[in-house]
Design a binder for these strands. Sequence first.
DNA 1: AATAATTTTTAGGTATGCCTAAATTGTATT
DNA 2: AATACAATTTAGGCATACCTAAAAATTATT
Lengths: 164, 164
Amino acid sequence: MRKKTIEDYAELVYDLQKEKEKVHTNDVAAALNINPASVTEIFQKLSEEGYINYEKYIGATLTEKGKRIAKKTRKRHDTLTKFLLLLGIDEKTADEDACEMEHILHKDTMDAVIKFVEVVNQCKVTPFWLERLKKYVQTGKLDKCPDELVKICIDHSKKTKLKN
Amino acid sequence: MRKKTIEDYAELVYDLQKEKEKVHTNDVAAALNINPASVTEIFQKLSEEGYINYEKYIGATLTEKGKRIAKKTRKRHDTLTKFLLLLGIDEKTADEDACEMEHILHKDTMDAVIKFVEVVNQCKVTPFWLERLKKYVQTGKLDKCPDELVKICIDHSKKTKLKN
DNA sequence: AATAATTTTTAGGTATGCCTAAATTGTATT
DNA sequence: AATACAATTTAGGCATACCTAAAAATTATT
């Protein structure tokens, strides 16, 4: 697996802190399947950089700075997961890819994804086009687009062209 | 920037080979803004692993194995770029994010993206929903969904519900 | 409260992907 | 063909993100 970033650790400590006040190196080690000794080093670094308050043998808590980055990363993660689920990806794959994407996408791209999810959620029912795509992704079968829908798109396209 | 992967190098050598038969360490070094000495090491590794034929001081060419991975990666890259452009992301950002995403996405996710682009390309005109989303991404303005379109979605949703 | 068991840290090691400086090879010029 | 210049490789170094084994601190048991 990819090397973990500060964001990964902040996000994880954030989650673990919901269960227990102080997060121990062992908790993180178990969650990420790495050696506790490695987490000690990581905690020392995160502490130096002001993301966590860390007392050895006692555990770590997020600082305000750490909480900020953790929340931001978790929100990105959740939005990306939702986005991929909308496209018809299965839960596990969506979650894993979201975890990768959350670190690399430009703000503009992330914002577009947020808006994508927002627009779809605003709809009373799942939009036809999305159902159609999802079915295609999941079954390989692509339904024909209803004529009246094609008409709406063409009409709309003409209208906007006239404006310009 | 992120550490480059074998896929990155294969893709790059593939592109450079269009200009000249043998790709020199310097060509890659210049393209990636890294030290030629580093490229020598990379070429040695790629050669050991069978992605390139490499003769020192002479240059490198892709093997069949290398060509295969290069083409695959380039195709992914292009599809991802198109996908992001459809969402309203600008060219530079789309290209950069595509370059990151191409290495990390699961096959299922990549396939969904391919299908997304395919479905949109099949349309006679850019679908209304996509125009609407794109405008929202680029300007922040979200148009109202026409009533007849909402109706189509609701009707369709009822129909599919009945079937199940 | 002493000792055993567990958790955590320290110390030291490995692999990787980059670097610089120096040595080597190839190319161009006379 | 000899020499100068450019391109390339070799050798050695650095930082990072992990590791293992041993030492130290904490916690549990009697």
